[in-house]
Simulated assay, not measured.
Amino acid sequence: MHLTLLISSAGRRVGLIDCFRRSAAAAGISLDILACDMEPGLSAACNAADEAFAVPPYGDPSFVDAILDIVRDRGVDLVVPTIDPELTPLAAAIDRFEAMGARVHVSPSCVIDVARDKMRTAEVLAGAGVPVPWTVPFMAGSVLGQSGWPAFLKPSAGSASRGIRIVNGPGDLPEAIDEAMVLQQLLVGPEFTVNMFIDQGGVLRSAVAHRRLRVRAGEVEKGRTERDPMFRELAEGVARALPEARGVLCFQVIVDEETGPRVFEINARFGGGYPLAHHAGAEYARWLLEEVAALPSTAHDDWRSGVLMLRYDAAIFEG
C-alpha cells in the first residue's frame, strides 16, 4: 500500500512529519510526504519532507487552487492542514478534493465556523451542556458590570494567543477595534489540552489530556499526559456539540479555582502538542492513514498517563 501525504502551512511541524513516518511504517504503508508553505526554503518541515512546494498565503484567492494543483500533479491521497485560518477555505473546497480522490483532513464548514468563532464556540458548547466561561461580544465603548472584572479580551477568531490581554476595568478597554473581539471570564487554574480522534462514523475513539506545564507562543513547550474521567466527559460533550466533526481535534480547558473546568477554545486540526499524545500511545496519525488506506482501524483509548514532553530547539542546516 502506497499513500502520498501533503502537509500544508508546514512551518516547523517536523514532529508531525515524524509521527506520520513512524505511523506509516508501523501500518505497513509506503508513504511519500510532501509539504508546502509560503517560503518552503525557510521551513524546517518543508526541508524534512520528501518534496516541498511554495503556495500563496491562506487568505489569497488562489490558495486552494494551488493546493489542488499539487494534489492533482502528485497524486496526493491526504491533505493535512496545520493552522486555523486555512481550515475555512479548505472546508469550503472538500468536494473539489474528493473529486480528485483526495481526503482533506478538515471537518465540514459548519464545524469550522463554530471553532473559528469564540462567541459561537461558547454558545454551542453551552447548548450541549459543556461548561464554558462566560463570554460576551465586545463593542468599543461597552462596559461590563463590576462583577465582570478582571476579564480576558481576545479576538473572536484569534489563535496562538494572538492579541489576548487581561483587562482589569473599563479603563483598560480599547476605544476602537479593527476585528471582532470578545470579553471572557478570566480563568485561574491549571490548563490542559485534550486531543480527540473522531472516526469517519462519528464515534469518539480517543481523548488524551495533557497538562500545559509551559507554553511558548500559544503552543505547549512542556506537558504531561493525565488521565481523568473528567476530560473524557468533556470530550464527549464537545463531540456531542459538534456531531459532524471528524478526525483530529483538540480543545483547551482550564480547571478554574472557583468554577471548576471550563472549555474555552477548540482547534479543529492537529494541535501543536499532538506529538505528546502520539508518544503516549494515541497514534492519531496512524489511525488517519488507516482510514485513507481502507485498512482495519487500530484506534483505541488505552494511552499512557504520566508521559512527559520537554521540547527544545533544533536546527536544520543546508550548504
Rank of each mutant, 00 (worst) to 15 (best):
Gly15Leu: 00
Gly15Ala: 06
Leu34Ile: 11
Arg212Phe: 03
Ala217His: 06
Gly141Phe: 04
Ala282Val: 05
Trp303Tyr: 07
Gly28Gln: 08
Leu234Lys: 04
Glu179Trp: 11
Val248Ser: 14
His278Ser: 14
Arg211Cys: 11
Ala245Ile: 10
Asp178Val: 13
Val124Lys: 14
Ser23Met: 06
Gly171Met: 00
Gly237Met: 08
Pro131Cys: 05
Lys222Phe: 00
Val238Trp: 05
Arg262Pro: 10
Gly223Ser: 13
Asp65Val: 07
Ala128His: 06
Asp32Pro: 01
Leu125Val: 03
Ser109Leu: 15
Asn168Leu: 08
His278Thr: 04
Pro275Gly: 05
Phe20Tyr: 10
Tyr274Glu: 03
Ser109Gly: 04
Val130Tyr: 07
Leu310Met: 10
Glu51Arg: 15
Ala122Pro: 02
Ile33Lys: 02
Pro170Trp: 03
Pro61Ile: 07
Gly101Asn: 03
Glu123Met: 15
Ala294Pro: 03
Met38Asn: 13
Ala93Gln: 01
Ala245Gln: 08
Trp287Met: 05
Ala27Arg: 05
Phe20Leu: 07
Ser147Asp: 15
Pro40Ile: 13
Leu276Asp: 02
Phe317Asp: 11
Ala27Gln: 04
Val167Asn: 07
Ala285Glu: 13
Arg96Met: 06
Gly202His: 05
Pro229Thr: 08
Ala277Val: 06
Ser156Asp: 09
Arg262Trp: 12
Asp228Cys: 09
Val182Asp: 00
Ala277Pro: 05
Ile254Thr: 14
Asp199Ala: 08
Ala151Ile: 02
Ala176Cys: 07
Glu257Gly: 13
Ala44Val: 11
Val215His: 06
Glu318Asp: 13
Val220Arg: 00
His279Ser: 14
Glu291Phe: 01
Asp84Val: 14
Pro150Asp: 03
Gly11Trp: 08
Ser109Pro: 08
Ser8Gly: 12
Val307Glu: 05
Val132Ser: 04
Arg74Phe: 03
Gly148Asn: 00
Gly201Ala: 12
Asp113Thr: 13
Ala45Ile: 11
Ser142Thr: 05
Arg304Cys: 06
Val14Tyr: 00
Leu276Lys: 02
Ala140Leu: 07
Ala282Gln: 00
Pro155His: 07
Leu234Tyr: 08
Val167Arg: 10
Ala45Glu: 05
Val238Ile: 04
Leu295Ile: 04
Ser206Ala: 14
His300Gln: 13
Ser43Ala: 13
Asp172Cys: 09
Glu39Gly: 09
Gln184Met: 06
Tyr284Leu: 11
Leu5Thr: 12
Asp84Lys: 12
Ala157Thr: 11
Leu310Glu: 14
